[in-house]
Design a protein around this nucleic acid. Structure first.
Lengths: 223, 223
DNA sequence: TGACGTGATACGTCGGAGGTCTTAAGCGAC
DNA sequence: GTCGCTTAAGACCTCCGACGTATCACGTCA
């Protein structure tokens, strides 16, 4: 195994074992390199790799720190990965989202606060009747994120956040080509919100399923 | 933005735009560094980072290649990330798995082949009545992986693979073996398999839910 | 024709030299 | 005494050049 890969494993080990805790500062590059028995250049490769996936936070002029290791932060790296997938795998991502999002919406129906409900309502009202496609997509993303956050599971939230990347692309495409998609999306959002207000988990789940399935169906028919 | 980060973005852009396709070979380090306008050392940091998340495949003495970019390969990097999470977030990961795995099992019930069913049966038979903990854990992992693969969704499969990481699984099982969990697990596996044979998606989904919920319940009571 | 050796090629590792940014201590003015 | 600026130290950023090591392809020889 290359010395850089060894260094990655060793740093990982230090964190997993608890020798390095979230927020801790690492020894400076030259010291850490000496400790691990490799050159500063090779160590930097290891640190850079761990930095890309948000394990380490490198601050020039200051030092290198272990991040909070929040699920949100680490899974955020997933969206970077998802970007590499081409359209032919979008359907598979969408299928996973079709499983997770209704479940998250149902969970949210039992936990969401009145305050959050009002915020979602205001958000939908602000958009108006005939928004631009860009505004609609941005709003859609925000709407679903708000709901999923209310599910109370940060892992689930981050996962869906990452999965929404390709879906978003598809939805832009759809909005540009399918005439009634805008109005339909707005109506479905209202329906989901109403189900949440009613604390009706099953209705919320069903509307979320319908919402995603409509995108999926359209995508399947055009690919 | 640092030159290395720029290089990461540029290489990512070349792949996403299609200038570099899966399997393609990159220019050699010195040339690529010159093209992107940075030193070979800094470029290597970028390549190493992309290599960690399985975007690039570096072969000493040969060259650097774009990987297949299969969802399986890229999401495999997630298990690396999951390893960093502490016990207090295991429940959240388990909750997500509780959503995905029953759905995957239900999907599998409609698609799994007779051949795969026989393979799963043989696998359970081989384990016997009183297996060792190591064998049980390995078998459990393999059993679920086999089912999820039959769902036909590689993204879903990779995702669950990452969530069921060896670390998480091992931690859970370590304490679980004290109870009657072994026999219970074996019985539940048999039940899931029977549902699959009957092509009964709902029964398969329910058994899978029960299977995971029992682990979740135990974990919640002990943490 | 096939096995072997050798050279070319490309990645792996290293040490050192400046450069840039952040932080905090030192210092003077209000 | 407090605030703001200057300055110096510390740490990461980038680069260069050199050498080590693994792989592949070509040519040689049996």
């Amino acid at each position: 195994m290359a010395v850089t890969d060894e260094a990655i494993e060793k740093i990982k080990g230090m964190i997993v074992s608890g020798a390095l805790r979230p927020g801790d500062r690492l020894p400076k590059e030259s010291e850490l390199a000496a400790d691990l028995g490799l050159s500063r250049n090779s160590l930097r490769e290891a640190v850079r790799a761990l930095s890309l996936i948000r394990i380490l936070d490198v601050r020039q002029g200051d030092g290198t720190y272990v991040t909070s290791l929040d699920p949100q932060l680490l899974l955020e790296a997933m969206s970077f990965v998802v970007d590499f997938h081409r359209d032919d795998t979008v359907l598979e991502f969408l299928a996973v989202r079709r499983i997770l999002e209704p479940a998250a919406t149902a969970m949210a129906a039992l936990r969401i606060s009145e305050q959050q409900l009002d915020a979602l309502t205001a958000q939908l009202d602000k958009l108006g009747e005939a928004p631009s496609v860009e505004d609609l997509v941005a709003c859609d993303l925000e709407f679903h994120r708000g709901i999923v956050q209310s599910s109370g599971n940060s892992v689930l939230c981050s996962l869906l956040d990452g999965l929404s990347g390709p879906t978003t692309r598809a939805r832009i495409w759809r909005g540009l080509t399918q005439e009634d998609a805008v109005g339909r999306t707005l109506r479905e959002h209202r329906a989901i919100l109403a189900a949440l207000r009613d604390r009706d988990a099953e209705a919320a789940r069903s509307w979320a399923t319908v919402h995603i399935a409509s995108v999926e169906q359209w995508l399947r028919s055009t690919l």
